[in-house]
Amino acid sequence: MRASSRLTALVLTDGSVVSAAFFLVAVVLELVGRPQVPGTLDVSGVTGSIGRLEPWGWATIGVLAAIITPVAGLIATAAEYRGRREAILAAGVIGILGISLLVALLQQ
């Protein structure tokens, strides 16, 4: 029997809209000629750039939202299939994504 996919669909839709909105702001700021100053990839660097209405900050938060969305979708899937084999598979995929995060951090 198939589990409901409503929560996963909702998470993916909302995530797409949020990341697209951030990207749209970045493109508009770019079009109106706001300075393209790459900031430092930390909380204060990104929030400062967003506050100064720089495309880099808005695009960075959009990238983060885009990256988080499929992961949130997998968490929603695991919740929808709670106690079934699919939930274990979703947890396994999230685990490997965790390894990629570790690899990413080790490369910094």
Binding site: A20, F22, F23, L24, A26, P55, W56, A59, T60, G62
Partner: peptide, 11 residues
């Protein structure tokens, strides 16, 4: 990954 490029590409 350059967000200044990735943002417009994704959108």
């Amino acid at each position: 990954l350059d967000p200044i490029l990735a943002g417009p590409v994704a959108l």
